[in-house]
Simulated assay, not measured.
Amino acid sequence: MTDPKTVLRYPAVAAEGLDDWRFFLMKLHARFRTGSFTKGLELVTRITEAAEEADHHPDVVLTYPQVDVDLQSHDVHGVTSRDVALARRISEIAAELGVESAPRDVSTLELALDVPDADEVLPFWQAVLGYERPQSWPEVMDPGGRNNTLWFQEAPEASGEVQQRFHLDIVVPREVAEERVQAALDAGGTLVTEEFVPAFWVLADRHGNKVCVCTADGRETASAE
């Protein structure tokens, strides 16, 4: 039996066959199309009961007409067997209620700031945003889990008095990535590089502002964006 505190990486999570879920940024993500607020509340109530029984609690957002669920073992800041087990149970509950999943719809938006030295500026952004810093990555995160994460990319050339060097990372399911890239190109964007595909594509708008379309696939072998 897998240690419940062992963090599972992408290949192991993908092998679990969680059809309703997608894995990226060290979380499992799912969206369930409830069709009504009442059905959504029923699903959330059942998820709450399952979470209490498992003594393991997801992040749940109820809106009309859907429910979004994120699963992560917060004590280790990653996905473990506890999350996999609860994901399976939540999928069973959704099926019992006749609620369809929409795994292609999930995504996470992060902000990235290019800096020559993250340690020099990270404390400022942590303080001004009121965020927390995890131990494993140069980033700061909203402790309430609602606002976007800000992470710091090493860029030695980003020094001196230059314009602010932000870019966006949009993380999507692997099967959606090419469609998203093509849609951006059709809308006037350009492909900067596909060197790190399938981990991420780098695109730019007509003014040269860059964005990365990211997936979980290949992220552990790709260099920093």
Score class of each variant (00 low, 15 high):
59 D>P: 02
60 V>W: 01
60 V>S: 03
60 V>C: 04
60 V>F: 03
61 V>Q: 01
62 L>D: 03
62 L>C: 08
63 T>I: 11
63 T>S: 10
64 Y>G: 10
65 P>M: 08
65 P>W: 00
65 P>T: 09
66 Q>Y: 09
66 Q>H: 13
66 Q>C: 09
66 Q>E: 10
66 Q>R: 14
66 Q>K: 14
66 Q>T: 15
67 V>H: 03
67 V>L: 05
67 V>F: 02
67 V>Y: 02
67 V>R: 02
68 D>Y: 09
68 D>M: 08
69 V>D: 00
69 V>S: 05
69 V>M: 00
69 V>H: 03
69 V>I: 13
70 D>N: 14
70 D>F: 14
70 D>M: 13
70 D>A: 14
70 D>P: 00
70 D>V: 12
70 D>H: 12
71 L>I: 14
71 L>V: 13
71 L>C: 05
71 L>G: 01
72 Q>M: 13
72 Q>Y: 01
72 Q>I: 15
72 Q>F: 03
72 Q>D: 04
72 Q>T: 15
72 Q>C: 10
73 S>P: 03
73 S>E: 07
74 H>P: 01
74 H>D: 00
74 H>R: 08
74 H>K: 07
75 D>V: 15
75 D>N: 12
75 D>Y: 08
75 D>T: 15
75 D>L: 13
75 D>W: 11
76 V>Y: 06
76 V>A: 10
77 H>M: 11
77 H>E: 10
77 H>A: 13
77 H>D: 14
77 H>W: 09
77 H>K: 06
77 H>T: 13
77 H>P: 02
77 H>S: 14
78 G>A: 09
78 G>F: 06
78 G>N: 06
79 V>K: 10
79 V>Y: 05
79 V>F: 06
79 V>Q: 05
79 V>W: 01
79 V>N: 10
80 T>K: 12
80 T>F: 06
80 T>I: 11
80 T>H: 08
80 T>Q: 03
81 S>W: 04
81 S>T: 15
81 S>E: 08
81 S>V: 14
81 S>M: 10
81 S>C: 08
81 S>G: 13
82 R>V: 01
82 R>E: 09
83 D>P: 07
83 D>G: 12
83 D>K: 06
83 D>A: 10
83 D>H: 09
83 D>L: 06
84 V>D: 08
84 V>F: 05
85 A>K: 13
85 A>I: 11
85 A>V: 15
85 A>C: 06
85 A>L: 07
86 L>N: 03
86 L>W: 04
87 A>W: 02
87 A>G: 11
87 A>S: 04
87 A>Q: 06
87 A>M: 04
87 A>F: 05
88 R>W: 03
88 R>C: 05
88 R>T: 12
88 R>M: 02
88 R>G: 14
89 R>I: 05
90 I>K: 02
90 I>V: 15
90 I>R: 00
90 I>W: 00
90 I>N: 00
90 I>H: 01
91 S>G: 14
91 S>K: 09
92 E>M: 04
92 E>F: 07
92 E>K: 01
92 E>V: 05
93 I>P: 04
93 I>F: 06
94 A>K: 04
94 A>M: 06
94 A>N: 06
94 A>P: 01
94 A>H: 07
94 A>I: 15
95 A>T: 12
96 E>V: 15
96 E>M: 10
96 E>N: 11
96 E>G: 14
96 E>Q: 14
